[in-house]
Every structure is written in structure tokens, then in C-alpha cells.
């Protein structure tokens, strides 16, 4: 497989994952704005969405208004925003075009159709009345491409690189979402049972599509440590950090098997991410949740960079 093609499937998967996670962030922001009391608290929520998406500085350089439609249009489709969801889908699709010979028709068509649909939908400003429809279409694109990968691709190097892209992006996104809101989980702020905190915790879980799963596992009760444990260390939850790390590991193992040997990426992964399996949530809080997450994000990015170098993504 060409190094350039490995780079292409890896980034195709990363951009699709990022688009989907961004859509979920907007969904949560919108949900909060609907239930929010004052205008100020609504604006705070939208500001927090921009922070989580890593767009706050760019946004503030252009706008001072934090109303919902202004913010979600910026994130979704503003030509001034080089990291808009529309751009992400365009990059995903461009990468898919580059690697057309490596992916199946089903994967290509799902990616291409998703891009065509969203390009049409995002040709005009999005209103609150059709935001839900747009967000659903973005999530559906991610789901369809994943389904096509799962159902039609050979389990070979191409598949492994796509999956590594998906889980590096997802690990990074979950960690960032958690990091922006980490303070709501800290003991000093945890007024068990207060309505405000319950809502904050619910928001956090929703942002990673984990609210239902968490309630189910915990019979409806909320507890900040349990939430942190769930999002970081639960091996069953497909967006937890440990789940993503495990998937990166197993796909790298697939590459080692196929290529008949490991690279420095395998060693680095063992070195950097294996501690997730040994650590418990108490230690994480002792170390400092924020520090732990920052460290995790750095390590994940390092692993991504070493994979790109070891497998000759670029010259």
C-alpha cells in the first residue's frame, strides 16, 4: 500500500469522526440553549462549545455576538472558518478521492453522498428550525461510512489505517470535551444532588453520546467520579479513552501481523497508553484530572505522528 494512500484513509476517517463529534457538540449546545434560563447563560454555553471545538480564538477575532445561530453557522459553514464542518467533510471526501483505489465503492459512495447532501444543506444559512436535520445528516454520514467500512472492506492494512484514524481522533475529542468541563467533576464543585450539577454532568455525557449508556449502567444515579471513570476507563463504552486506546493498539497489532514486524509506534503506544489499564480513577484525581487529560492528549498526538512517520505517510 502506498504511504500516501495510508495517509489518505487515515485522514478521511479522522475528518469524518471530527465532523460527527462537532455535530454532537452543537446538538448539546442547542439543547442547553433551549432549556437554559437567561440569555447570558445561553451565550456562555455557546462560548463553551466554541472552546471545546478549539475555535474560540478565531471566532472572537471576527465576532462578538454569541447567539446560537451566529455560533452554529460559524462552526458548520462559515467560509471564514477553515475548520468548519463543511470543510471537514470536503477534506474527508478529497482524501477519499485520493484513495479511491484503496477503498470499496460503498465507502466512497457513502463519503461522496454525505458530502453532496451536506454541501446542499449548508449552501444557505442554517436556522434553528432546520438545525436538527443538518446535525442528523452529519451524524448519518459518519454512521454510513463506518457501516460501509465494516461491511465491505477487507480486514487489511487499509482498514487498519482507517480505524487508527477514527480512534486517534475520537480519543482526542473525548479527552478535549472532558478537559473543557473537567471542573464540574471536581470534588470541591460536586454538590451531590444539586440540579445545576446534574444538568452539567448530563451535558458532559451527552457530548460524547454517553448519557443513555451511563444511566443504564448506573441505574439513573449521577456521581462525578463514576462519570469520570466511565468516560476514561470503561472498556465497554466505545468513546472512552481506554476503549479508543485499545482499538488503536489492536489495529496497530493488525499492521504488525500483516507487515511481519512492529515499528517504533508499537513501542511508543505500549509506553504511553498502557498505563490507562493500570490506573484507577482515584489515582487520576490524585494526579489532577486536568493534568491527566492534557498528558493524554499530548501522548495521543505523539502516537499519531510516529505512525505517520513509521508508515511513510509523507516523504
Amino acid at each position: 500500500m502506498l504511504g500516501r494512500a495510508a495517509n489518505g484513509v487515515y485522514w478521511m476517517a479522522r475528518y469524518l469522526e471530527r465532523a460527527e463529534n462537532t455535530a454532537r457538540l452543537i446538538d448539546v449546545g442547542f439543547h442547553l440553549a433551549l432549556t437554559g434560563s437567561s440569555k447570558d447563560s445561553q451565550h456562555d454555553e455557546w462560548r463553551s462549545v466554541l472552546t471545546t471545538a478549539g475555535l474560540i480564538e478565531d471566532y472572537e477575532a471576527l465576532y462578538s455576538d454569541f447567539s446560537g445561530p451566529q455560533v452554529f453557522n460559524y462552526i458548520l459553514r462559515d467560509p471564514e472558518n477553515p475548520g468548519s464542518v463543511l470543510k471537514m467533510l470536503e477534506y474527508a471526501r478529497t482524501n477519499a478521492r485520493v484513495v479511491r483505489t484503496s477503498i470499496t465503492n460503498a465507502v466512497w459512495e457513502a463519503t461522496n453522498e454525505g458530502w453532496m447532501t451536506l454541501k446542499d444543506m449548508l449552501a444557505r444559512p442554517v436556522r434553528e428550525t432546520n438545525l436538527g436535520e443538518v446535525l442528523t445528516a452529519i451524524r448519518r454520514t459518519g454512521t454510513l461510512v463506518r457501516g460501509a467500512l465494516e461491511g465491505t472492506m477487507l480486514r487489511n492494512e487499509v482498514y487498519n489505517f482507517a480505524r487508527i484514524g477514527t480512534f486517534i481522533e475520537r480519543a482526542d475529542n473525548t479527552a478535549r470535551i472532558l478537559d473543557v468541563k473537567y471542573y464540574v467533576l471536581l470534588p470541591s464543585n460536586a454538590w451531590v444532588g444539586s440540579n445545576l450539577d446534574n444538568q452539567q454532568w448530563d451535558t458532559l455525557l451527552r457530548s460524547v453520546a454517553g448519557n443513555r449508556a451511563f444511566s443504564w449502567l448506573n441505574a439513573g444515579s449521577m456521581d462525578p467520579r463514576e462519570i469520570a471513570r466511565f468516560l476514561i476507563l470503561d472498556g465497554q463504552f466505545p468513546r472512552s479513552l481506554v476503549f479508543c486506546a485499545e482499538k488503536i493498539r489492536s489495529n496497530l497489532a493488525g499492521l504488525a501481523k500483516e507487515y511481519g514486524g512492529e515499528t517504533s509506534a508499537h513501542e511508543l503506544l505500549r509506553d504511553k497508553l498502557s498505563r490507562l489499564h493500570q490506573i484507577d480513577v482515584e489515582e487520576i484525581f490524585d494526579q489532577g484530572l486536568h493534568e491527566f487529560l492534557q498528558d493524554f492528549i499530548t501522548r495521543t498526538n505523539e502516537v499519531g505522528a510516529v505512525i505517520a512517520a513509521d508508515y511513510r505517510f509523507t516523504e
Partner: peptide, 21 residues
């Protein structure tokens, strides 16, 4: 394989493409 010029170089008297390995 679908290759571009940037994937290729001359090595040992052959045209070679940059693969992941």
C-alpha cells in the same frame, strides 16, 4: 497502484514507489 510523481523515486536502476513498508 494509482501513483503520483511524488510517490516515486529512482532506486537501484528501477522506478520505485513509496509504500508503507
Amino acid at each position: 497502484e494509482l501513483v503520483e510523481g511524488s510517490d516515486l523515486r529512482i532506486m537501484n536502476g528501477r522506478v520505485a514507489m513509496r509504500t508503507t513498508t
